[in-house]
Every structure is written in C-alpha cells, then in structure tokens.
C-alpha cells in the first residue's frame, strides 16, 4: 500500500524525522494549520514514548479514505516492556519519566480516535486517527 509511510525510532533525531514526516503528510492531506500542529505534536509524543520506554520502535502513517471520509492514522509500535496498567497511563498527570505527564491523555485529546494495545514483556501498539473535517 503506497498510502503508508514510516520512520524507525532509534535515536532522538528520529523523533524529529517522524514529526517532519507527519507534518508533511498532514499538509498534503489537506489538514489546516491547527490540525497539522495537533498531528505533529501527537507524533512527537508517541515517538518520544517509544524512544524513552522501549528504546526502539516504529511510527507508521496511513492516509485514509473511506466512505467519503478522509483522514490520517498514526500507528506507534514497539517491542518494549509494555504498559502494566493501561488505565493509569491514561490518567492526567501520570508519568514515570519525570516529564510533564501530558503524554497519553494529551495525545488522545489531540486526535479523534485513540486505541492502545499493550502486553507486558511483548510491546505496545498505539493507533490514533484524525479525520479531515
């Protein structure tokens, strides 16, 4: 499928690469400046989570077009330690890295659809979608 592009996350520089890819994809999909900022920021948060907690992983970006609805999906996947308590990481203000704790619930608010699948010891897959209004 050529509607998909991806960036492997190994270093801090890959975070920058991932969000640059996301910003371009968002712009080309016709998103306005506010949604571009939302998508770029969401990717940055997800990529940083991979870098901080899993060490390595992948950010994939799909351009969607179904039933006349257009949008963009971000898939952040890693084979890291997984998330033991999903409910807790979705609470505002929760953080294990000493950051601002805005990560996961913040990303959820920035996007329209948000899904986390995680298994301890196996890894985490986060899928987040923004629809073109």
């Amino acid at each position: 499928m050529d509607n998909r592009s991806s960036v492997e996350i190994f270093t801090e520089w890959d975070i920058v690469a991932a969000r640059q890819l996301g910003r371009n994809e968002a712009k080309n999909s016709g998103f306005g400046t506010v949604d571009q900022a939302r998508i770029t920021t969401a990717i940055s948060e997800l990529a940083r989570n991979i870098y901080l907690y899993a060490g390595k992983g992948k950010i994939e970006i799909d351009r969607l077009s179904t039933d006349g609805m257009k949008g963009m999906t971000i898939i952040a996947s890693d084979e890291g330690p997984g998330i033991p308590d999903l409910r807790k990481v979705m609470e505002d203000g929760f953080s294990t890295s000493g950051g601002l704790g805005a990560g996961m619930p913040g990303v959820k608010r920035l996007m329209d659809d948000f899904k986390v699948e995680s298994e301890v010891g196996k890894g985490t897959i986060i899928t987040a979608t923004k629809w073109l209004r």
Partner: peptide
C-alpha cells in the same frame, strides 16, 4: 505563540 500551538498545548493539558 501561534494559535495552532496554543490550542495543541491546551489540549495536551499544558
């Protein structure tokens, strides 16, 4: 601070 940046910051909870 650009409007788009302000909105994303607020939505992030910052």
């Amino acid at each position: 601070i650009q409007p788009a940046v302000a909105i994303t910051l607020i939505e992030l909870g910052i």
